[in-house]
């Protein structure tokens, strides 16, 4: 009897995880904008809800999950904000970085995405706001560079984004990690022990 521990090829992970979940994140972004419009920050929610999905995806699938967030946000924001450089560079790229930072915390502190222990929860609760804050700084810096916000709006943007993103991640992401991680671990797409 032999145990078979297969790993999907990089090509498969790129196509399946980043592609398919890119579609899921895009749908989430699309509906978040329509459903939960934020006064004064139209489209802001388009980043928040998918964030909850790609944080979980990145803890499961590493780089490929983060790419799904990036692609998904880009596509999902498209009908409202165009498939423009700005969307690609700000939110979408920010959404790529944030979950990878969270994953780095999990690897550094050897936490389990199943969130079984107090330590797992502690790492989750600390890493998410830090990651989203860093992403928010980047996103608003790009918006500022493109001229769509002023520097004054940068500070408020970062604060609002960090709170909004973190709340969404804690609300939906926690459920996802608790419910599905055990099952995902048995799939050939699960990436363990590596940042990328």
């Amino acid at each position: 009897m032999s145990e078979v521990v297969t790993q999907a090829s990089i090509k498969m992970k790129l196509a399946i995880i980043s592609g398919i979940f890119g579609g899921v994140c895009a749908t989430a972004a699309l509906f978040s904008i329509i459903i939960i419009p934020l006064p004064g920050i139209p489209g802001g929610s388009g980043f928040w809800i998918p964030a909850a999905l790609y944080f979980a995806l990145t803890l499961w699938f590493g780089l490929y999950g983060a790419l799904a967030g990036h692609i998904g946000t880009f596509i999902g924001m498209g009908p409202f904000f165009g498939w423009t450089f700005q969307v690609w560079a700000d939110g979408a790229l920010g959404d790529f970085m944030a979950p990878l930072i969270c994953r780095a915390f999990f690897l550094l502190f050897k936490a389990d995405p199943e969130l079984k222990t107090r330590r797992d929860y502690a790492v989750w609760l600390v890493s998410v706001p830090i990651a989203t804050c860093l992403a928010a700084m980047w996103i608003h810096f790009v918006n500022y560079s493109f001229g769509t916000i002023t520097f004054g709006a940068w500070v408020w943007g970062v604060i609002a984004y960090t709170i909004g993103d973190s709340l969404a991640v804690f609300t939906i992401g926690t459920i996802l990690l608790r419910v599905a991680t055990k099952w995902v671990k048995t799939s050939p797409f699960y990436v363990t022990g590596r940042l990328l």
Binding site: M1, S2, E3, V4, T6, S187, P188
Partner: peptide
């Protein structure tokens, strides 16, 4: 696809 793609135990 078993055993080349899926994880499990094979004989």
């Amino acid at each position: 696809l078993i055993p080349h793609f899926l994880r499990g135990y094979y004989r």
